[in-house]
């Protein structure tokens, strides 16, 4: 395990905290893109760059890294930015808590995930980064916080992506490598994100996004 991996994981946590503390959607999306970049770099950091030059799973790894890079760092942030511009929402409308409080909460979540991985989970194998699980867990929790606490659909989608990133990190940490299915999963996330984006656009056209998703208030529908 190289120092690089630890640094990258620390960076992931840092991005979590940043996303938690900013109210601007654009900044959040960019941070998300950065996190995607980091995630793409993670397999290289863990397995060493040598994996690119030899070994049986070269193609596999290259593809995974490229897919991750392309999707998480480029495509999705691009769509998100577009959706943001179309919906005309630039920042979290009237954040529920002050941003300081939000940052504090994210910090607590990060602390919590360190505690959980120290107390509840088995100790990491020798040689693997001790930061893997806490970082993944922290990302997951922050993502959940954003999804649950988000007041606009865009924030919720960003939260969901962060959450996905967390699962991704944990998966990598637990499984040590990318199995085929996880790659498929990554691709699927893209599909989900695209779907969400489509929905988001639909909302953008139909205004009043704040009332969205309130199922109980759905009027009794017509003939369907």
């Amino acid at each position: 395990m190289s120092l690089n991996a630890d640094l990258l994981l620390l960076l992931v946590i840092g991005i979590d905290l940043f996303i938690g503390s900013t109210g601007r959607l654009g900044a959040r999306i960019r941070a998300c893109a950065l996190q995607g970049l980091v995630l793409a770099a993670l397999p290289l950091a863990i397995q060493g760059t040598g994996v690119l030059t030899g070994g049986e799973r070269v193609l596999h790894t290259v593809l995974a890294v490229l897919a991750t890079l392309l999707l998480k760092a480029v495509a999705i942030p691009y769509f998100l930015m577009r959706a943001m511009r179309q919906s005309g929402v630039q920042r979290e409308a009237e954040p529920e808590h002050s941003l300081h409080l939000s940052l504090l909460l994210c910090a607590v979540l990060v602390g919590l995930s360190f505690w959980i991985s120290a107390v509840m989970l088995p100790p990491p194998e020798a040689g693997s980064s001790p930061l893997g699980v806490p970082a993944g867990l922290a990302t997951l929790l922050v993502g959940l916080y954003l999804t649950v606490g988000g007041r606009t659909e865009l924030t919720q989608v960003i939260g969901y992506l962060v959450l996905e990133n967390g699962v991704f990190v944990i998966g990598q940490r637990v499984l040590g490598e990318f199995p085929l299915v996880v790659e498929l999963g990554v691709l699927l996330d893209v599909l989900v994100a695209v779907m969400l984006m489509a929905v988001l656009v639909a909302f953008g056209h139909r205004q009043d996004p704040s009332a969205a998703g309130n199922g109980a208030a759905t009027p009794v529908g017509g003939a369907r």
Binding site: T147, R151, G215
Partner: peptide
């Protein structure tokens, strides 16, 4: 069943 997606989550 009130409060939409965030609450459901």
């Amino acid at each position: 069943q009130q409060g939409g997606v965030p609450r459901y989550l």
